[in-house]
Design a protein around this nucleic acid. Structure first.
Lengths: 333, 333
DNA sequence: GTGAAAGCGCTAACAC
DNA sequence: GTGTTAGCGCTTTCAC
């Protein structure tokens, strides 16, 4: 039973029509009689025919695949719970359209080069960009390639024309900051992410938009999205602002680190210090107390990003979208 | 500047040689003079040539891509910290060989169908299987497709001939169980994963191999790898074995749930009850106390799986490998 | 409404 | 050591 894979030719023969007609049926083009269509569909079934994408692609110069590019340093990706959500949603949305998702990592120059070559080679119809940061050389490389691209997460900096779908980082930060204020907290600090990332810059903007730029300045410490970084930042913040009674931490993972620093310092949470996180990842429910945090609709972000990318592929315009976040109250604040 | 993408023909012309010679240089075949090689490389650079994979694939019927198939119910993947590690490592290893990684999700019948069609269509040179379970219909579909495949994680059941690379689940479970015994614990319970998964069945085997099948039987409760499931299982275990002084939980996420159940029940950890986890994921360092757990070398698992798959593609044999795990002692036991 | 035929860009077999 | 050439399987005019 090791017959060669059937080609469109075999199907045509089995259906008693020409290859052209089979192609028309397969692609849903007009000008096919009902009889022919039925015969072709039957023949496809009987022969077990599956199109050869390479041949189709050679002819149409469309590949049927989208590349998802991660431009995050690898260690961080390693700990990033958001990434797999985006990937899952994107894979499913693309599968709905019979397209596939290729993954590439552009963490260093070599990786970026590979991505650039891949795109210039026309190996993907479009690109989905994950976790780019301000001034990321990848953005320029992608734009130069001419391949349609959409980012998941805001694209920072005025220089890029790349559209994006993102959760409302600014609004989410405002939400939780206002919640802390509403709880009667008066000395509220913040631990940010790296300021060249949207989650770093925009969540800080949300925070300061509530508490004021000036006041907030000495209450803000910068972290790096790792748990150890969160712990260090919390320790530093406690030192500089001993009277602190609340802290908004820009990611759950960092918040877990902050919780540990607070415990070590003998501060009760939320009794002495209330802690707010961001992400609503699995970590948020694993800490003690569980984290009050901000949920990002990441599956919707991916859905929207795919939708926008498909529009772009069809030559239609697509505007960036920002999706609302949601406060999730648990024990830590 | 919107020139058409250069083809091998343009390169040949620029280098003053034939297309055949260019192809030989590109593919590192012998019988090329140094002069010709230099000229071709220069021309490639000058023209910005990138091979057209579709054309190459059409000719060679090799695609240069590997598909990673997730056969996990989607909700679980969502919380699974292991998956992104495997994917990152596999992507990097494949990139080293200039191959790319396509992601597919085979969580339901529709997904499995798509995967089967994809493989039968010859759209990938090989498959990397993630989180298959015993009797998974996907395994049969993959085998029927004739596409070389390797699993990450042991393949359960005698029926499948698919080779795998896995962490030593049994040994890791033994390691931590012996550690608990060595700490003087006498009433040691266990919360397993689903028994049709390797992590479910093998970690339980490791546990019972230390404590004995009979003794262990009433001390074992089954979980589902979720945090809520871990919490429920812990509650049930405490009820049936009130004198419990230690528990080995088959994943960190479930262990986080167990910790919460213990806290609610007023049992001190590790004072009253020692808790051991498995995975050494980010969660393990976020709980309080931090989890004593078993580290799996997942990047090595992916490395090995890719290596085996490449061997298979070259027509060489490949034997399954099991990689040693490591005990990571923190606060919970 | 349908068939015939011309390539898409590449590799590999063959002739020199 | 190098050039020539015949397709790989498909889509898409162009006739009919």
């Amino acid at each position: 039973m090791e017959r060669k894979r059937p080609t469109i030719h075999d199907v045509a023969e089995a259906a008693g029509v020409s290859r052209g007609t089979v192609s028309r049926v397969l692609n849903g083009l007009p000008n096919v009689s009902l009889a022919a269509e039925v015969a072709v569909r039957r023949a496809v079934n009987d022969t077990g025919y599956v199109v050869n994408r390479a041949a189709r692609s050679l002819k149409t110069s469309r590949t049927g695949s989208i590349v998802m590019v991660l431009s995050e340093p690898q260690e961080r990706l390693f700990e990033d719970p958001n990434f797999s959500v985006l990937m899952r949603a994107a894979t499913n949305r693309l599968a709905d359209r019979d397209m596939s998702l290729v993954l590439m990592i552009a963490g260093d120059d070599g990786g970026r080069d590979r991505v650039a070559r891949y795109l210039r080679g026309g190996h993907a119809d479009g690109a989905l960009l994950i976790s780019t940061h301000a001034g990321d050389p990848l953005l320029e490389a992608v734009e130069r390639s001419g391949v349609p691209a959409v980012a998941c997460g805001a694209v920072l900096g005025r220089t890029s024309a790349i559209r994006y779908a993102a959760a409302d980082d600014r609004g989410g930060a405002r939400l939780i900051t206002e919640y802390l204020v509403g709880q009667g907290r008066r000395k509220i600090g913040m631990i940010t992410g790296p300021l060249d990332t949207p989650g770093g810059a925009l969540r800080m903007e949300g925070f300061t938009s509530v508490l004021g730029r000036k006041v907030a300045k000495r209450m803000v410490v910068h972290g790096d999205y790792t748990q150890a970084g969160g712990e260090r930042a919390m320790t530093a913040l406690l030192k500089s602002v001993p009277a602190l009674d609340a802290v908004f931490v820009a990611s759950d993972l960092m918040a877990a680190g902050a919780l540990q620093a607070l415990q070590r310092a003998g501060r009760a949470v939320p009794g002495d210090v209330a802690v707010g996180g961001f992400d609503d990842s699995a970590i948020a429910a694993a800490t003690s107390p569980m984290l009050t945090t901000v949920r990002q609709p990441l599956d919707q972000v991916a859905d929207e990003a795919v939708r926008m990318l498909m529009a772009l592929l069809d030559g239609e315009p697509a505007e960036s979208v920002v999706l609302p976040t949601e406060l999730v109250v648990r024990g830590s604040a």
